[in-house]
Amino acid sequence: MHEELIIAGFGGQGVLLIGQMIAYAGLAENKHVLWMPAYGPETRGGFANCTVMVSDKELYSPVTTSPSSVIVMNLPSLDKFERSVEEGGLIVVNKSLVNREVFRGDIDKVVVPATEIATELGNVKAANMVALGAYIERRKTVKFETLINLLPKIFKGKEKLIPLNEKALIQGAEFVKNL
């Protein structure tokens, strides 16, 4: 197993956080992991993306130009990263904020209305968790239970957010199961 994932969206959509969750989960499963944010001069807003790698083998280059999977939370991110996905790879698209089709015909596509699902659950900010749930259900990079078990650590001091985020993860996974 060797996964090179890029997660991209607007700053504030929580793309860095779900990337870190995958890295923490991979570590909990004794895999080689790394996480690296693309950083810019902005303190808030703008575009955010990070690279996550999870592998059975030792990891060398922390940067990839041909990721095996990409999660895009908005249209500019789809425009930027669609072409880079490795042939046979996966793209997860937040349909709620992307008003076009995925052009690539040689990759697996999961198109999920993450922002809508999160809004229905009561908090638009949980769209990242919906996308994460959908991604993990399709790609199985780490076990779903490992992610759920991480929530108390991720939301330490904000425990009241755990049930919402757990529901969002489950809804994302359920959406993919029902495709």
């Binding site: 570590l27 080689h32 992991v33």
Partner: peptide, 10 residues
């Protein structure tokens, strides 16, 4: 360098 400074690893 900035890449290593931002990189997160076990």
């Amino acid at each position: 360098d900035g890449m290593l400074g931002q990189l997160m690893e076990p």
